[in-house]
């Protein structure tokens, strides 16, 4: 069952964050990032705040509130989810004159992200597009995993069984993420980060293998047998993480 509060956290702290990586792959996103600087704050009742700073050639995601040129308010998570589903709109509290930016460049950005994350099969035949899809998918899936671990009822049960420490998620020759575990709560961090406690690793044989797994083209259990996914280190922590990974498609499909 999809929990609306968890879905809102996934949308706010995982999907929105993935916009950060978009300019590296997409000309249109790069163009928007090189345009006028805007800072959009998302305030979601019962969920939290986050800001996106767009401009100066990049997109930066910042969890929490602060200075912003546009402030969007959602009374609850369901309203944020409706916006992500294309069935609802936010209430602008600040930057009413910038509706044009939201409807124009910002919507274009989110459309480009959808273009990469919900890729049409024919587009995946192109190696460059496929690599972009894989990298962005890896990013969104493992950031979503921590949100699910901290908020979804099944996720919390599994996260509560995890020992303090970290799991390195890496693709050979590609990006790396670290999932830090502390007192049954998870936090995804970019890169191979040192975290106190036990340490395990899940290494994909290539970025493409990671993409295949997240797109559901490759079964994770099968991938272990073929060596496309190598597990090692403090194994009990991975066992629980695999259960969490199984919950991710509920929220991202």
């Amino acid at each position: 069952m999809v929990d609306q509060g968890t879905l809102a956290r996934v949308n706010l702290f995982a999907v929105l964050r993935t916009l950060e990586g978009l300019p590296a792959h997409d000309d249109e996103a790069r163009k928007i990032a090189n345009g006028k600087r805007e800072v959009i704050q998302f305030t979601v009742g019962g969920v939290g705040k986050a800001r996106l700073a767009i401009g100066g050639g990049k997109i930066a995601f910042m969890p929490g509130g602060g200075g912003a040129t546009i402030n969007l308010w959602f009374p609850d998570g369901a309203k944020l989810n409706a916006m992500f589903a294309g069935t609802g709109n936010p209430i602008p509290l600040k930057g009413l004159t910038k509706i044009g930016y939201l409807k124009g460049p910002f919507t274009a950005l989110t459309d480009r992200l959808t273009h990469y994350l919900r890729a049409k099969p024919e587009l995946l035949k192109d190696a460059k597009f496929r690599a972009a899809n894989s990298e962005l998918s890896l990013h969104v899936a493992f950031y979503a995993l921590s949100e699910i671990a901290n908020a979804d009822p099944d996720g919390r049960l599994n996260a509560g069984r995890m020992t303090d420490g970290a799991i390195l998620i890496a693709a050979k020759g590609g990006p790396a993420l670290t999932i830090a575990v502390k007192d049954g709560r998870l936090e995804t961090r970019n890169g191979d980060v040192e975290v106190p406690g036990k340490r395990a690793r899940m290494v994909f044989s290539s970025l493409d293998a990671a993409g295949q797994l997240i797109r559901g083209e490759l079964s994770s259990y099968l991938a272990i047998g073929t060596g496309d996914v190598s597990l090692g280190g403090y194994t009990p922590i991975i066992d629980h993480m695999n259960k969490l990974l199984g919950l991710v498609p509920r929220y991202l499909s």
Binding site: S220, Y221, I224, G225, T226, G227, S230, L231, G232, T235
Partner: peptide, 16 residues
């Protein structure tokens, strides 16, 4: 491929 405890995942075959 091979499921359960006789398989590489549950059997913790590291490295496979």
């Amino acid at each position: 491929g091979v499921y359960g405890h006789l398989g590489p995942a549950e059997g913790c075959f590291m490295p496979v």
